[in-house]
Amino acid sequence: MTVTRRELLKLAGSAGVMSLAPAFARAAKLEKTKVAIAVGGKALVYYLPLTIAEVRGYFKDEGLDVTIADFAGGAKALQAVVGGSADVVSGAFEHSLNLQSKGQFYRNFVLQGRAPLIGFGVSTKTMANYKSPADLKGKKIGVTAPGSSTNMVVNFFLAKHGLKPSDVSIIGVGAGAGAITALRSGQVDAMSNTDPVVTALVSSGDMKVIADTRTLKDTRDIFGGNMPAGTLYTAQSYIDANPNTVQALANAIVRADKWIQKAGIDEIAKTVPSSYLLGEPEVYKAALKASLEGLSPDGIIPEDGAATAVKALAAFVPDFDPAKVDPSKIWTNEFAKRANEKYPNG
């Protein structure tokens, strides 16, 4: 079966289909050396490969001059690319499906996270008597930004338990210290966020997790399959016009993915900017430990990921019609495969 697939890919390549991702052996000139990447919450473990690629010089090694603009959430980062102020999104896989349903074609081309890495929990103060999801009705729930993947997890959780998004109030609280303050001060009653925010709140006793997507098992239990998370994605038109530049980006992220798996918790904590630690290095290390399994080891998007994402979106996005999208058009592994050929050992 594997041989057949490879043969088919070779045939596709000879027909020109594979020009999407040129072979790394070609000394292909970059169409663009300057690339602007928009991200929603750069300091989050969710986007750790992006930071590692930047800090360790992997983008520069590929001949790229990358600038990274940080926004409050993935939905805001996406707006920057759609609006033309950035070229590529470091964001959640499922956003491209939502875009396709609106006639906009974006494609994920390298994976950073193979699980959403999001923890959803309730305040131990304002919801000390929480017993079931029904208790969330009428409560204020903090997310990184409305419409982001943290919001998706809340909505999917609510739908699974017979509640509607309109049964709660969704409030954007960002992805750093401000999010922690929002829960501790009682501005919100529950929180859907990623690490290190989740681990910081759990460690201090301020939050009790009721749904967790930081491990593959919990992710598959909640979503019914593999749910790809952080990726680099951009407009199909950008990929068509700049395949060598996109390949260079994929090379850098795959190297970062592999370095993270080998480096170990202490080395990662020493490598990221000190501001990421939020003044609590041990909490950050605990967050890394809780999320490490959910980070991609090689940048490859799971084959069933798009189908899982379609089901998740259909469960909670108003007017999302699965019949109107072609999941195969929102992702490709060809860039990541070539990156793995170039950097088999990271």
Rank of each mutant, 00 (worst) to 15 (best):
G40H: 00
K42H: 14
S14V: 09
A28L: 11
F24R: 13
I37G: 02
V17S: 10
V17C: 14
L20W: 09
A43I: 13
P49E: 00
E31L: 03
I52P: 03
A27N: 08
A53W: 01
S14L: 12
L30I: 04
V45W: 05
V55P: 08
K34C: 04
A15K: 11
E31M: 07
A25L: 13
K32R: 10
L20K: 10
G41W: 01
G16P: 04
G40K: 02
R56N: 02
G57C: 01
V17A: 14
R26P: 11
A25C: 13
A23M: 13
A15W: 15
R56V: 01
P22V: 03
G13K: 05
R26H: 15
F24W: 11
K34L: 05
K34T: 06
L30Y: 01
G41Q: 00
S14R: 15
Y47L: 15
V35T: 03
E54A: 14
G40A: 00
E54R: 08
Y46M: 07
A38R: 01
Y47N: 14
A27D: 12
A53K: 04
V39Q: 01
T33A: 13
M18V: 09
T33M: 14
E54K: 09
Y46N: 09
L44W: 06
L50P: 04
R56F: 05
A27I: 05
K32Y: 02
K32H: 07
G57Y: 00
T51Q: 11
M18Y: 09
I52F: 02
V45K: 05
K34Q: 05
A21C: 06
G13S: 14
L44Q: 10
S19A: 15
V35F: 01
L30R: 04
G40E: 03
V39W: 04
G57H: 00
K32S: 07
G16L: 09
K34V: 06
V17N: 10
L30H: 00
T51P: 08
A28I: 06
A43Q: 12
F24L: 15
L48D: 02
T51R: 08
G16F: 04
R26V: 15
A53G: 01
E31V: 04
Y46C: 06
G13R: 08
A27G: 11
V45L: 04
A15P: 08
V55E: 10
V45Q: 03
E54P: 07
A38M: 03
E31I: 04
L44Y: 08
A27F: 07
T51V: 12
A28M: 04
L44K: 07
S19K: 14
